[in-house]
Amino acid sequence: MIETTIEVSAPAPRSRSWRGRLYAWYLSSDALKGFTLLSPTLLVMGFTMCIPFGIMVVMSFWTQIGFEFDTVFTLGNYAEAIEKPVYRALLLRSLTISSICTVVTVLVSYPMAYYVAFHVRKRKMAWIILMTVPFFSSYLLRIFAWKVILGYNGVINSGLKGLGLIEQPLAFLLYSPTAVVITLAHAWAAFAILPIFISLEKIDRSLLEAATDLGDGPVKRFLGITLPLSMPGVIVASLMIFIPTVGDYVTPTLVGGPDGLMIANLIQAQFGLINNWPMGAALAFDMMLVVAVISLLYIWLTRKAMENIA
């Protein structure tokens, strides 16, 4: 005979103890199992990042009195941060140096990422590793290396002198904003390549062939297809360089000289010599806000620009 779906006449009563029901719920909930696994990491992140950040923000509204804090709410630190020319100047300089460094690094790294994505076929992984390795090797030592190179009696000056090209060492090499830009660009170059490379690698090769087929020359093809499609990688790369470099203080300390000091040096000093922690907290938060606003603006502008092209 023809069977259709059979109703199960009397499903056994749900023999549910309280614990059984809880266990069944746990088994049935992906989210619950997922959050159980996530919870240790989230706890650690909360304790070492979110809570400290919250306390820092709170502290930025306090006042330092000797070694104690006056916990009365005040906007004084922020008023000072905005009004005092030296703070403004240092922040502005940090942003300028970071921006230049970002532009330089992305411009220099793009062709490299392009080369690996499109022209390396064998051992692509070896190339990628070769470019990433320096990023994870000692930051301090890399800066030190540039000090050795750019120094008054450093590699460049002593080398040029040895070749008889100059009489006196070039004093502007070390302890200048230029030195900071060069050092930072070198330090973050590896970081810029990866996102750009990934976005280039994702581009469907047939799109490029189609463009060629439709009559685009190499330049037009690059501007019309490759560049727009790799823009997400460029945006990620620039943010990944810009944001951390604004807050760098080791490079300016070692190779920047008085003209190369940045806002982070000042923040560090508030927690060291100057010993005004609330002011330092305010400056740090201030810097983060500015960086966040600039980053969002940058993302928004590039999106707009891409929409206009499209």
């Binding site: 199960v8 499903p11 056994a12 749900r14 023999s15 059984g20 029901r21 069944a24 088994l27 049935s28």
Partner: peptide, 13 residues
């Protein structure tokens, strides 16, 4: 509910 050999399975991993 799923039953195998008469036993409800929702509590059984």
């Amino acid at each position: 509910e799923v039953y195998i050999d008469g036993v409800p399975m929702s509590e059984v991993p």
